[in-house]
């Protein structure tokens, strides 16, 4: 069931100048949301930004006993900046949960999976890590960014997965290994670790590199894709990405979680 209503902001937590979390009172969305799904949020006065923005449901949680959802946001433009300015208690229009979640139903405790994230792409993996931990499915996190400030400090991952299972990389070496997140993931494969499935979210260059690694090794993947969307429920057809089958995939309804083999990365 998709909810279309105004929901109150329970709390906004700032991490640094660019990053913050918004907790929304969203009982029915919290109950329904699956890892990888998203919500469309109207920020601002409705004219600027005009369109709603898509945000991954980062986590389902409670704030002072009230069930809600958490959105993890990096302020990059008019929409994300407006979302960070709302006072607690403000009702804002929300539509969700939307889209195809990460495929996890078929996973067993004997499976091992990897979570690969770049920058703010960590957002949808929080709820995923929580659900995997609840089911006792072992998971390794590979998380990178350009520098330390682009890597979100989320203690949940170390709690859900175990600290030894979380590995970091930054382009400038300010946190974790110097290099790309796909380098440390590739190194783990080289060292003999095998994964039943790889879940990923991040910028296009990361997706492209990871898609190539997974394809070369025959490893199954599910990517939470991002694309500018006006509606979020399959009617504007604005968010398409080119598919290998020659069609355009509507990311909001066929995705956002799609196997990387569905996308023609040479045309993205």
């Amino acid at each position: 069931m998709v909810v279309n209503e105004a929901l109150r902001i329970l709390r906004t937590v700032r991490y640094d100048a660019a990053h913050f979390s918004v907790f929304l009172q969203a009982g029915s969305i919290a109950a329904a949301a699956k890892p990888g799904q998203f919500v469309m949020i109207q920020a601002g006065d409705g004219l600027r930004p005009y369109l709603r923005r898509a945000f991954s449901v980062a986590d389902v949680t409670t704030v002072a006993g009230v069930p809600g959802i958490e959105l993890v946001v990096r302020a990059v433009g008019v929409g994300t900046e407006a979302l960070g300015r709302f006072a607690e208690g403000t009702p804002i229009p929300v539509l969700g949960p939307l889209g195809v979640p990460f495929p996890i139903e078929d996973l067993k405790q004997s499976d091992r999976v990897a979570l690969v994230a770049g920058g703010i792409g960590l957002a949808p993996l929080v709820l995923l890590a929580r659900r995997l931990a609840e089911r006792g499915i072992p998971a390794d996190l590979f998380y990178g960014g350009r520098n330390e400030s682009e890597v979100l400090k989320r203690p949940d991952f170390e709690r859900f997965l175990g600290a030894h299972r979380c590995r970091y990389a930054t382009d400038d070496g300010s946190l974790g290994k110097k290099g790309r997140v796909t380098d440390i993931f590739g190194a783990a494969l080289d060292a003999g670790t095998s994964y039943r499935r790889v879940f990923a979210c991040g910028p296009v260059p990361m997706f492209r590199a990871l898609a190539a690694i997974l394809e070369a090794r025959g490893v199954e993947g599910s990517f939470a894709l991002e694309s500018e969307m006006a509606c979020g429920f399959g009617v504007c057809l604005g968010c398409v990405l080119p598919g290998r089958d020659g069609r355009f995939h509507t990311i909001c309804t066929e995705g956002p979680c799609l196997p990387p083999t569905a996308i023609d990365w040479s045309r993205v």
């Binding site: 600027r48 005009y50 369109l51 500018e228 057809l237 604005g238 080119p242 355009f248 045309r267």
Partner: peptide, 11 residues
């Protein structure tokens, strides 16, 4: 082929 949409002020 995408990109197919972009936001503008009030539209």
């Amino acid at each position: 082929p995408p990109p197919r949409i972009c936001e503008t002020d009030a539209g």
